[in-house]
């Protein structure tokens, strides 16, 4: 391996248990320098535990952790100057202002006063927090807290940024803004390790993704590669005026060369290798008193891949998350 394509992060058979719970059961992966790597999984899958082990907040039972080709397993402290960490809960000082919090975080990395002030103000501006810079962090809204916590994570220009569920619990606009910031970091050369349970987010942001379920990586690949496997198929979704429940068998019999799914009472999805001529299907339904009110081609998504690989319903994952909510 030459130095140019040395992995930024390399984990080899890293495992961790807490009492009876095997939180992480020996995961191995590489994160290439400059990419956004997604760690995608449901609650309790072991995402945070993995980040804690990689950053030196938890001690692995066994395994090896390397950064840029150097083994730091025995002394992760030595690698901490390389990394920025944005935890799943904001852990800044509530009684200090946004500006003071950032400046304090910068000082932990040895940055001088002038440099700290400049960098803090620059980040406050680019995260849209200049107006709130003098206010106590404790009084920030959830989205503002998230943004300041991310700013604190990158204050010292880390080579690698760990983001633990950066958009959980923030509104749509804030989430979009955070995603833009993350994309911006990638273009400035930062390697990003991102955990999330939002599949669309992972699809939009990440270069490569690992699905983690129950402490194990069940699938890991480039997003483009994961999608390509569903790309071969043509999926069309028809919405109808009435219920299709009584008619399922008949439809399946009538078009035996087509694979169908019925995601809802009045929705029918056809999955075929070749583009399907829709007229016969629409006519077939109309003859039975059901009008097709809408037809659209469905683009393949990572969600389908995720469900196929993990067997986990995406909606369930989201709901659990929203119930729990972040700080």
């Amino acid at each position: 391996m030459n130095s140019e394509n040395t992995a930024a992060i390399e984990a080899l058979d890293v495992a961790k248990h807490f009492g009876q719970v095997e939180a992480v059961k020996g995961v191995s992966f590489c994160v290439n320098a400059g990419e956004i790597f997604g760690f995608l999984g449901p609650n309790g899958a072991g995402k945070t535990t993995t980040i804690n082990m990689l950053t030196g907040l938890a001690r692995p039972d066994h395994g090896r952790i390397s950064y840029f080709g150097r083994d730091y397993t025995a002394n992760l402290k030595k690698a901490q100057h390389l990394m920025g960490v944005v935890p799943d809960e904001s852990n800044l000082y509530p009684e200090m202002s946004g500006l003071d919090n950032l400046s304090f975080c910068a000082s932990l990395y040895g940055m001088g006063k002038k440099e700290r002030e400049t960098r803090s103000r620059e980040l406050l501006a680019s995260f849209g927090l200049t107006d709130a810079s003098k206010r106590a962090f404790g009084g920030y809204s959830r989205g503002m807290k998230r943004r300041l916590t991310i700013a604190a994570g990158i204050i010292h220009h880390p080579k690698i940024l760990f983001l633990d569920e950066p958009t959980t619990g923030v509104d749509v606009a804030s989430a979009r803004r955070i995603r833009e910031l993350i994309a911006g970091l990638k273009s400035s050369g930062t390697t990003v390790f991102l955990t999330t349970h939002y599949i669309e987010e992972a699809q939009r942001l990440c270069d490569r993704i690992a699905f983690i379920v129950d402490g194990r990586i069940v699938r890991m690949d480039a997003v483009a590669e994961l999608l390509r496997q569903t790309h071969g198929k043509h999926v069309v979704e028809l919405t109808t005026s009435g219920s299709l429940t009584q008619m399922r068998e008949e439809v399946l019999r009538g078009f035996s060369n087509v694979e169908f799914e019925f995601p809802a009472d009045n929705i029918l999805r056809s999955i075929t290798e070749q583009a399907l001529a829709l007229a016969p299907l629409i006519r077939f339904l109309e003859e039975r008193g059901i009008a097709v009110t809408e037809a659209r081609a469905v683009k393949p998504s990572l969600e389908d891949v995720f469900i196929r690989v993990t067997g986990i319903e995406v909606d369930r994952m989201k709901k659990e998350k929203e119930k729990k909510g972040p700080q």
């Binding site: 030196g56 402290k77 852990n91 800044l92 509530p94």
Partner: peptide, 15 residues
Amino acid sequence: KGRSFERLLLAPISL
């Protein structure tokens, strides 16, 4: 308890 200590533990200075 408030987890801000984690930030100190992540700083590249010896314990």
